[in-house]
Design a protein around this nucleic acid. Sequence first.
DNA 1: AGGCCTCGAGTTCC
DNA 2: CTCGAGGCCT
Length: 671
Amino acid sequence: MARVPPEVKDRVLRLRTAIEKYRYDYHVLDQETIASEALDTLKHELATLEATYPELVTSDSPTQRVAGEPLPGFKKVSHTVPQWSFNDVFDEEELRAFDERVQKNVRAAFGNSARATYTAELKIDGLKVVLTYNKGVLDTAATRGDGRVGEDVTMNVRTIKSVPRKLTRPVDVVVEGEVWMGKKGLKELNRLRAKTGEAEYANPRNVAAGSIRQLDPKITAARPLDVFIYDLAYSSEPAPQSQWDELLYLRDLGFKVNTYGSKQLPDINAVIYFWQTWLKTKDREDFLVDGVVVKVNERLYQERLGYTGKAPRFAVAFKFPAEQVTTVVNDIVLQIGRTGILTPVAHLAPVTVAGVVVSRATLHNEDQINRLDVRVGDTVVIQRAGDVIPEVVQVVPELRPTGAKRYVFPKKVPECGGDGSIERVPGASAWRCVAKNSLAQQRRRFYHFVGKHAFDIDGVGARTVDQLLDAGLVTHYADLFTLTEGDFLGLEGFAEVSAKKAVDGIKARSTVTLDRLLIALSIPQVGEETARDLARHFTTLGALEGASVETLKEVEGVGDIVANSIGAWFRDADNKRGLRELLKHIVVLAPERATASTLAGMSFVLTGTLSTLSRDEAAHKIRERGGTVTSTVSKKTSYVVAGESAGSKLDRARELTVPVLSEEAFLKLLA
DNA sequence: AGGCCTCGAGTTCC
DNA sequence: CTCGAGGCCT
């Protein structure tokens, strides 16, 4: 027998403690203290360890527990029809394997030309209920429980408006469905709870489950619950002959059926397409979806395929990628930005979140680290904010290794390349490297200088900048413009073609508009918008350079702080010298002016991917016509232009009833 | 003083 | 996308 390493034993014990605690919070206290899918990662880790070291399995381990044991306080009901669960598949390959098994079986039984088709139905993330109707009247509602015995929640389910008390015909049926709470309903509920000082809920699914399990139906009645019925387990009438007809039959009886999120599909490719489409758009719905249930459509084939011990062979749940998972923090590293701001970044054990492998996540600043109390070695829950940027949501303190120390910001940052001294920015939560000669900052400023919104030099990116700096070929911006093809040829990865491309790229950008130059200079407080405002106001660099703080404040959006920052930058001797040198090699043009005013006074927010032009091009076209482009939706926004797979800005637009333009409508408006 | 609305700065992965 | 803060209006 393999000897169990002590750290594995320790981890297993801690995992059990953690899982038990979250289970208690959820089931007994009715509190959401961790996302259920993050808890799944922990359970999975425990199960894997126990499988590797079977001697660690104990009878009280959470892995040995039967799921969904009935709670005390509710009458128990035995289900008259067995409650199956679905086998899960997580990717296309597994789904195709399922399809092959199905088709093989069907051919074997019904001949070579027999083929199963499918229905795909969104798998709503809520609480499953089993409803029994006698002669068309609701008799019992039960939770799934362990599959054989559930809890009698009839009184609570009766308070849900979309559950019919009486059907359109006096039939005896047993149906299954999902009780759920909408995101909007949860928001409203939280608003009311905040008013009375009660803790807010995080996840509508758990609130839905908690609401159904209230001992007082009045509480349930006050919760905005809804239901979708999706399965007919028994009927006194002849059963429909396909899954799709079953849904229509249920609807016909008066049940609320999610036909909008369901479809009859000819083959597995169509199922995959259905899944991919919903993956992109599911977050716009009010309900939570955790996957697609794929069922063989033909009842005849379903019956032939039958059941395994716990699940039907004719159906699977094709899950969407988890959006919150747990992983381990291997290290916390400081990054130095171009203005010297220090940003702590967590280096993580690589893990798949929402379909993408993530190995780093920002911790923003010192306050955020302290709030979360993240330590090296910690197990953390991470998610991708707005499905893009990874972030640490919470720490799982039960899984903290003994001796893990609280993270302390260092007093010095030698890696900045200067003298390494840092200070906390007054009145802010950031630390800044204040070394005058910081090489790290110089590097970041160079990245920014050649970047898309500044000089936009083709053929010179961050990697090339690194090499140029390391080889000592450049120290000041001006040096870029005297580089020769020979200089590039000495660098790794450069041959004649790429060297020529780099030199040409630099040459092509030696004429710039004033706004781009200002963006490129990394003047604190001056970003894209302010640079454009300044350029438009002063037109020439000379006018801006000589401007007093008072004159600067005349510019829209420039107040004391920004004006002083600009003034100080132009007074600094090093900056002056650097700028003079740079100007010897470049030509500065007045900023582009709007050529029309068809969009004057209108403000736009762009979201999603447009098919005929990039977002930058779209923004340019808006500005050309006198309109403005901002990044956040507010009441003042005139239009939100939504492209493919638009994100949260679209939701925000709907919330504030800001008009939304399709790409087509937008192009029409431009014309 | 407080509450918008904007902006700047920093971030990840494909 | 998030956070924090500057600017400006009420």
